[in-house]
Amino acid sequence: MKDRTYGTPLPGVSEEPLTGRLIVVEGADASGRSTEVEILREWLEIEGHPVVDTGLRRSTLVSEQIDRAKEGHTLGGATLALLYATDFADQLENKILPSLAAGSTVLADRYIYTLMARAVVRGASREWAQRLYAFALRPDLTLFLDARPEILMHRAISKYGSLDYWESGMDLSISSDRFESFLEYQTRLRHEFGWMEEPYGFRVIDANRRPDQVHRDVAEIVRPLFEAPPEKKRRSPVPATSRSRRAGSE
């Protein structure tokens, strides 16, 4: 198990072979991430691959508590970061690993990288966040949908009619002006994703473009993953240290 995670073993987890593939789609709110996950799921299922999707804050164990805590805006930085980590660990052990063992493709709409970025912009050190999530499974592929904060802002406003409290990082007290806070918060998050590109092997997709353009690039990267039989693929998973490549930006 240890060689499949970022360094820390998961105690009490069975050593079943994981025949499914873990594909992570990362990106800010309004980066087109969820749309892409939907398209990808549809496409993979049509191709005949069983797909299980997962995301943040969906565990049966603590998601309710997170919602309640967010309503009250009362939790400190370390507490919130650890509550999210608990939620993630629960999803990993009770949903992601069993699905992979059953041979399904797991599509993760956000993963530890979002959680690490959020924790760091709220004062945690990068080292602390990295070590905290060292129990996470290395994905076979991580797609990072990268969009400029200005683009995100226009999309968010046209989508929701306003800027969300949390997506604007209002809890950080950057500015009482939500517009300003949103831009600064998203810039900081993007900066955190930036340093992760290399060590975590992100495939960066230019998400400033239309969904169909984004998907064309994504499909090109995902397709080879399903060309060889799963058994063969499993022996050579995409290593997390592989160099990140900026697709679609030329």
């Binding site: 009490g12 049966t60 939790l75 400190g76 507490t79 970061a81 608990t86 009770n94 129990f135």
Partner: peptide, 21 residues
């Protein structure tokens, strides 16, 4: 549902809350 990892993280969350508060 509880495993050693979630058990540990849950208590860490609780401690962090007590510590910060």
């Amino acid at each position: 549902l509880l495993t050693p990892t979630t058990f540990s993280l849950l208590h860490a969350t609780d401690f962090a809350d007590r510590f910060e508060r």
